[in-house]
Nucleic acid binder design. Structure first.
Lengths: 345, 345
DNA sequence: GCGGGCGGTGAGAGCGCTCTCGACGACCCG
DNA sequence: CGGGTCGTCGAGAGCGCTCTCACCGCCCGC
């Protein structure tokens, strides 16, 4: 343990500035109702002493923490293959920092951890939570709700039951999927297949729905279920080639899957995009740009998504905003996507 | 704001169990020196009331927070292209969770943020810090030191000045590089080139040193400086082909760079590995497995690195451990690497 | 010229917890 | 059988802050 010099207290600052604790407190917290002359003297004392408020003492009385929990309930796979997660965190971090809030990160590991997270959130250590829980059967949303703590979800949660007052920020997965498939159709392709993502996640379901919106009466054999992984993409593509060797386009539920599909197509002697055009989803840069050929894909602004989630939550927490909100509660947001054309379609 | 029911206090539990506050506190914190009969009664009361200790009140008196900061000082690029960061976080999170510590994440954005981070750390909101700051000129290490807060660095820091007592966990970059180059030599290659990483990071410097260890008197033209990015890898590879068209192997400082190099080699009509063998570094799965051909590379156990960093810091913070430590201060760790053979070399 | 406001300031009471210290039996030894 | 020791527990004093409330000048209006 490093011995830290005893940090100056409000008391010390007050003594130095020749005022009372209350006045120093007022100045430190915005300084309303303190005459400028005095305030100036206090600020000077604060600087000289290097005073930093003790957050614990402050929280004890205000019952606020200026801290937000970010709960990530991904069992390895997805989050850690993508830089996804990092991007969202960055967006969140930016927004929180701008409002002097801290980011407490909770990563969960299997079921047991849910209890721990629930306890933590219910324990009132943070003012709110941003939750990433993309699986349909996830207990987290209920847990959060029963913890009685304000929360915003990343991605549309889809649990059975009351959805009132549930805030989330999602990407327009369905619309993005439609754009992708329409793009393929616009290229003159008619036998457009879809390799789905893991269908226990709303994003995968929505992308599939988007595909169906355009391909209203597609051959069901053109739809192959997969799991968002490259290996899954390979398997699905093989299956697809067996079912419909005449397939001339593939819309994969994400870039990783598309990369797997691309490899199988190459193996099978198909040229991309000449014989089969391929579109992915996510625009994971190190992947989408590195594939052979580079991948046409649907981009989503992940960082913005994080930023928005944080903003929504902070607004929810701010009593001032709560007043303004009368008659217009803050609502969930769905972000647009854009098609990024590269060589694969 | 959600109205949270007033949470029960120690006082309430004490009343219910018919004991004093002090006794409840003892039970809650391990229960030494309390007769089992009483302790049992207290635990029952805790359960019934759903009591959760107020961390703020506790911190106020103990001056401990059971929270550590993770500071990531990466200007975008590296961290967010790799799943690197996510893996490390996971390792850290696991270890911290196991010891009931919270993880406060601080991402920095340019210079201004350093001051903010410094203030935060000096403010005594956390017990220690894990710092990722891979750039030679980074002010963070000094800042941390002057904040007087225990810290462990991820990657060997390299600032001028006193290094005593500086703890870090690093990967054996130099050894891994040696292995990579020896592997290429073992394949019968003699004109082995190296595309470096950004040389303002110790990892890049160490990898270059490892290359030099084996290629003691290599043609300097075989060494091309780059920056860890795919685009940089492409540029470097072009330069290399211009300088030494007879190059028969490339050791790239990381997988992203290798992927860029691979693309240029393909363009130029070289076959990999027949004409030119390529080895990367990091084993970033979604990249290394997706390249054409799949990349032989040097793997580092990133998650373990995070775990170790946390363990080191926690030990540093634990007064008990401090006693045991007499005569043997905890020291930095360098993790081994392993060569992963795929198709590119 | 005097009372009522009012803006500015200080005194003091807690927030919920830990921890020291002293009290109090029970138990042991001589 | 008396004095000391040990284990167990409660009383109470803060930790550093916010916030209410009372107080004190001063300015205004009549």
């Amino acid at each position: 343990m490093t011995d830290t010099a005893p940090r100056p207290t409000l008391e010390a600052v007050a003594a130095r500035a020749g005022v009372s604790r209350a006045t120093v407190s007022r100045v430190v917290n915005g300084g309303d109702g303190v005459r400028e002359r005095l305030a100036e003297r206090v600020r000077k004392a604060v600087d000289e002493l290097g005073y930093v408020p003790n957050q614990a003492a402050r929280s004890l009385v205000t019952r606020r923490h200026d801290a937000i929990a970010v709960v990530v309930a991904e069992p390895e796979a997805r989050v850690f293959a993508d830089p996804f997660f990092a991007r969202q965190l960055r967006g969140i971090s930016k927004e929180l920092t701008a409002h002097d809030n801290q980011l407490v990160l909770l990563l969960t590991e299997g079921r047991d951890d849910h209890a721990r997270v629930g306890r933590y959130l219910a324990g009132g250590h943070v003012d709110g939570a941003l939750v990433f829980s993309l699986h349909l059967d996830d207990p987290l949303p209920k847990l959060i709700r029963s913890a009685g703590i304000p929360a915003v979800f990343g991605g549309r949660p889809d649990w059975n039951g009351d959805q009132r007052g549930v805030l989330y920020v999602d990407v327009d997965n369905r619309g993005g999927a439609r754009d992708a498939v329409r793009h393929l159709a616009g290229l003159g392709r008619s036998r457009i297949a879809h390799i789905t993502g893991a269908l226990d996640q709303t994003s995968a379901v929505d992308r599939l729905d988007g595909y169906r919106d355009v391909m209203v009466d597609a051959d069901p054999r053109l739809i192959v279920e997969s799991d968002f992984t490259p290996a899954g993409g390979e398997r699905a593509m093989r299956e697809l080639l067996a079912r419909r060797p005449d397939v001339d386009a593939v819309f994969a539920a994400n870039d990783l899957t598309a990369a797997g599909a691309l490899r199988v197509l190459r193996e099978s002697g198909r040229r991309v995009p000449d014989d089969v055009a391929v579109v992915g989803f996510d625009d994971i840069l190190p992947v989408a740009e590195q594939t052979e050929p580079p991948l046409t894909t649907v981009r989503q602004d992940i960082e913005e998504m994080g930023r928005l989630m944080a903003r929504l939550l902070l607004r929810e927490l701010d009593p001032r905003a709560a007043e303004e909100r009368v008659g217009g509660t803050p609502s969930s947001v769905v972000l647009p996507t854009t098609l990024v054309r590269r060589a694969s379609a």
